[in-house]
Amino acid sequence: MDGRGLTMLESGFGWVAGAPKFACRWSIKAFTPEFTFCTTLFDLLPNRRHVVIYPAAVSRFSVRLDRTAVEMLGATLETRDACAVLALHPLHGNRLLGLRPLTEPKVPAWSDRPADAPPYLGPMELYLELPDDGIRVLFLRERLYTLTDTLAEIRQALR
């Protein structure tokens, strides 16, 4: 990340001396599109008004969300619908962070759900597109439940 992005990380994302500072951190192990493990981090900033998400723990894809965006992601997980929320990227400004049902040709949406769940309760994908790159994180079965619980905890912690 260039100097401008690092300055934004320090001023708007709670970083001090090149490292993140946070009031609380959550981490969830999920998958890349190639089905290798990755960890997504959620940092509640010290002001407790924003949370920074590091999809797959990659700082160049970090985005800052407010309470409204976190609530929308949580509601989307409950309905298994799709949404895109406004997120602030340190270098590219306002971007859309999306959450949608996973539609991979190799993974039918109905295959990764409890036996008694309706077909639409399949895996979900968190994604972010930047002008020069993008990232996708897949949440399957128990990881999806962990994401739902984590977002509920974050909503309670936000002011």
Results as ranks from 00 to 15, higher is better:
Met1Asn: 05
Asp2Glu: 11
Gly12Val: 03
Gly14Ala: 12
Trp15Glu: 01
Val16Cys: 11
Ala23Trp: 11
Ala23Glu: 15
Cys24Tyr: 13
Arg25Lys: 14
Trp26His: 11
Ser27Asn: 14
Lys29Gly: 04
Ala30Asn: 06
Phe31Arg: 06
Thr32Cys: 04
Phe35Lys: 10
Thr36Tyr: 14
Thr39Glu: 14
Thr40Phe: 07
Leu41Met: 10
Leu45Arg: 00
Asn47Ala: 10
Arg48Ser: 04
Arg48Pro: 02
Arg49Thr: 05
Arg49Val: 00
Val51Thr: 10
Val51Leu: 09
Val52Tyr: 04
Ile53Asp: 02
Tyr54Val: 05
Tyr54Arg: 07
Tyr54Phe: 15
Tyr54Cys: 03
Pro55Phe: 08
Pro55Glu: 06
Ala57Tyr: 07
Ser59Gly: 04
Arg60Asp: 08
Phe61His: 14
Phe61Ile: 06
Ser62Arg: 06
Arg64Phe: 02
Leu65Asp: 01
Thr68Ile: 13
Glu71Asp: 09
Leu73Arg: 01
Gly74Lys: 08
Thr76Asn: 00
Thr76Leu: 02
Leu77Met: 09
Thr79Phe: 07
Arg80Pro: 00
Leu86Ala: 14
Ala87Val: 12
Pro90Leu: 08
Leu91Thr: 05
Leu91Trp: 08
Asn94Lys: 09
Leu96Pro: 02
Leu97Cys: 04
Glu104Arg: 07
Pro105Trp: 08
Val107Pro: 00
Ala115Val: 12
Ala115Arg: 11
Asp116Phe: 15
Asp116Cys: 12
Asp116Gln: 13
Leu121Pro: 03
Tyr127Trp: 13
Leu128Cys: 05
Pro131Thr: 04
Asp133Ile: 04
Asp133Gln: 10
Gly134His: 09
Ile135Gln: 03
Ile135Asp: 04
Val137Ser: 02
Leu138Gly: 01
Phe139Ala: 00
Phe139Lys: 00
Glu142Ser: 11
Leu144Ile: 02
Tyr145Asn: 08
Thr146Lys: 11
Leu147Ala: 01
Thr148Gln: 13
Thr150Ile: 06
Thr150Gly: 06
Ala152Thr: 09
Leu158Thr: 05
